[in-house]
Write a protein that binds this DNA or RNA. Structure first.
Lengths: 195, 195
DNA sequence: AATACAACCGGGGTAAAGTCCGTTTTAGCT
DNA sequence: AGCTAAAACGGACTTTACCCCGGTTGTATT
């Protein structure tokens, strides 16, 4: 079955990836995210360190991979799910729904989402925020705000939505209550978009 | 001159701190912030690594210290300078002025401000944002927004103001143009605060 | 089935952050 | 001036992310 262009994943590689993800999940649950080391993960999965690195590229990549399934499902809901989160509602309504959903998503995945931030690499700073940024930009465009620099506004709203949970609210142990932030996001958007 | 409660800084400590700051500034200028290592800095300043750590505590602390003078001057302008940045103007006007000044400050100190973010410690995530947060909170309170959760709104606006320059806009080499962000901040605030 | 080649595996190696603790220097006090 | 406690010093040590490369295994082709 040589379909597509990319060679399918090798059987041993797939097996190892499962082992690594399972081990990572278990270690995160047992010891906390910051106790998950490359060496420890490799040993626990009965694999070499080099294998871990090839799979995930970087320490943050582990948590990125752990997040991946849920993140996919989340984006799916936004792109093709029922309104108001999915298409079919007005842009302002969708912006509000997106902020609420994203806030709850980040709070629900608090530990892993924070660990998925790459804290050592210089370049890929705003990694997971690409989708949020693109989506906000699109909806702002549809909302038809008069004479505004939508690109800058998009960046700022992305910061307003993601920074509190990812950066600003410190306690790394437990997630903050997302409800006040989600409500506040709603008033923020309503006030910005009314004319 | 044993005034106050704290013992004054010892002469050798003061001398060494000057050496370290000078070396850090030079290395940052010559090699870039990410090439400044604790070992390299210690060697360049002809001091031991332990000394570097006692002074700055952490790698980010180096850049925090480098920023300190300017940061102080900035806060001074906000607290006691002329309006609209300083006291004397209306809260909305001051919010706008603060955002503009802060954006320009962050852009002017782009490399160092980003390097001052501690990317490894779990706790002190939003370190430099404390002043911004407190100031925004105060002005929002004065602005008298009707029935709003001002604490959550403050956190989000802090994210909107600082995250773009510190996190979201990636290229670590050069600062982005602060003007569009400052303008966008103004419309953001104006739209939020009108009633 | 045999072969070639690409992908994968493993573990030892490097660099840099952060810690520790015995030694040295300083400043106030007598 | 001499004493002493506190502060500063320095460099060896530990930990951990990330790199490298020779050997091995899986997959496509003949």
């Amino acid at each position: 079955m040589p379909l597509g262009r990319r060679r399918p994943e090798r059987a041993d590689a797939a097996r190892n990836r499962e082992q690594l993800l399972a081990a990572a999940r278990a270690m995160t649950a047992e010891l906390g995210a910051d106790k998950v080391t490359m060496d420890g993960l490799a040993e626990r999965a009965h694999l070499g360190k080099g294998t871990v690195y090839r799979r995930f590229g970087t320490r943050a990549g582990i948590f990125h991979a752990l997040l991946d399934d849920d993140e996919h499902a989340f984006q799916e809901q936004v792109l093709t799910g029922p309104p108001p989160l999915g298409p079919g509602a007005g842009p302002v309504e969708r912006l509000i729904a997106y902020g609420r959903a994203r806030t709850e998503f980040l709070a629900a995945h608090y530990v892993i989402a924070r660990a998925a931030l790459d804290r050592t690499r210089p370049v890929p700073a705003g990694e997971g925020t690409g989708f949020t940024r693109a989506h906000i930009r699109m909806l702002l465009g549809q909302a038809g705000l008069a004479a505004t620099d939508l690109d800058s506004l998009t960046v700022q709203l992305t910061g307003a939505l993601e920074a509190p949970l990812l950066i600003l609210l410190s306690p790394p142990g437990q997630a903050p209550d997302p409800t006040p932030l989600a409500d506040s996001w709603q008033t923020l958007i309503e006030r910005i978009c009314r004319d």
